[in-house]
Amino acid sequence: MGRYVVRRVIQAIPVILGATFLIYALVFLLPGDPIQALAGERRADPTVVAMLHNRYHLDDPFFLQYWHYLVGLFQGDFGEDYRGNAVVDVMTRAFPYTINLALTALVIEMVVGVVAGVIAALRRGRFIDNLVLISTLMVISIPTFVIGFVLQLLLGVKLHTDYGIDFFPVSFNEDAGFRAYLLPAYVLASTSLAYIARLTRTSLIEVMRADYVRTAVAKGLSPLRVVVRHGLRNALIPIVTFLGMDLGSLMGGAVITEGIFNIPGIGHQLFQSVYLRERTIVVGVVSALVLVYLFTNLVVDLLYAVLDPRIRYE
């Protein structure tokens, strides 16, 4: 197992290098001068443009620029953006918000999704099952930004103005603490939550038909123990896979939700930086996200072994 982990970590190095190169090249290929982007619709003063081009080596050929970047990277320097802010500062400022948001969302989708799925599976064909199926179908078919704006209006604005309850902040507000993450995390989690509920339901129904479950019931185990120890544990394998992949997309794909609720996180930052052609920030952020993906993938693979003793890594 230890050797397996080490091998995986070593495999990650070329992946990250490849990712930085690809992203660097892609952002480089985007048309438009980043210094002009800073000036917006006005043409930037040619002298100022020349000075800044010089300062950030923008007139160098691509490979030389990438080389400058890599050299900095190996010295632990992520570079700075075109306004002179260190990329590390930008990332350490934005990542905590996204991590809080993504973890809250993950907990919500895990708890609510699995519970709803289990209930639906055990009450198959009954009212509660249909309710879960229909409500999840609705959530899947409505775009996230619609859910976001509607909930923001109803729970953020209307609840406050019409009923005087100021529980869900309309937009992110550090003073509100954990409350500030609840609504956005729910919106962010909503689609995955629906998938998880459906996945759990199907998977559990399948497992409950298995021989070993029949054996467990025949042994006279309590129904709770049958469902949790024998049913759910085996049904969880596809769900863990899904959750692992999802953590990555929750962090990188929160652009819309972070925008609606004005959370100063990494998705927000990434969007702005792509628009402004802030190459160093985009590469830094995306590489960090690649790391997150690699790490969660490793954790997921290790979790398989925990859930299913038949799986071993040597």
């Binding site: 953020g156 972070e258 925008g259």
Partner: peptide
């Protein structure tokens, strides 16, 4: 000065007097 990315969000905050 509260910094917003989306004008819609700012407007909702205005309606809630935030």
């Amino acid at each position: 000065f509260k910094i917003y990315d989306k004008l819609e969000t700012a407007y909702n905050d205005l309606r809630a007097d935030n």
